[in-house]
């Protein structure tokens, strides 16, 4: 009985393990990085990897308290670019297992609190409806280059 349970669990986990393997042919397991929209992120991948939370934290105070609405380090913009379209229409949450935010965070064992309050899917944003803010120009670089 116990052995059957273990076997069933292994079978369940097998596809997940296979998916994790896809991202890396070598011996070191790596998180699956879902490619975002567009050519590259608003900053180098190496920089974003280390400092995205610093930038997001800074932006949150600027927007919340001072009404600054630049888009470069806005969480909304992250979600807009990094959410993948769902096969059934709409988008998959960036906080869903295997998706952009979650896969790295799971790998690093860091919980994400953002999406307890923030939308994890692109939506009809206020900015888009008004369509007046210019998109912040970024330096473009292929995400795959720095894998």
């Amino acid at each position: 009985m116990g052995r059957h349970l273990v076997l069933a669990l292994l079978l369940l986990l097998a596809p997940a393990a296979a998916a994790a393997q896809d991202s890396d042919a070598g011996r070191v397991p790596l998180p699956t990085i879902v490619k975002g929209k567009g050519e590259a992120c608003v900053a180098d991948t190496a920089y974003m990897r280390r400092y995205h939370m610093t930038e997001l934290d800074h932006q949150r105070d600027e927007t919340m308290h001072r009404g600054v609405r630049t888009r470069k380090f806005s969480l909304k913009e992250c979600v807009d670019c990094h959410a993948t379209p769902a096969p059934t229409g709409g988008y998959v949450s960036v906080n869903a297992p295997g998706q952009f935010c979650r896969s790295c965070h799971d790998y690093a064992a860091v919980t994400i609190d953002c999406f307890q309050c923030h939308a994890a899917r692109p939506g009809e944003t206020a900015t888009k409806r008004a369509g007046e803010f210019p998109r912040t120009a970024g330096k473009f670089r292929q995400e795959s280059e720095v894998q």
Binding site: K76, H118, A126, T127
Partner: peptide, 8 residues
């Protein structure tokens, strides 16, 4: 399913 511009 919050609105992106109104986190709650």
């Amino acid at each position: 399913d919050q609105k992106p511009y109104a986190p709650r």
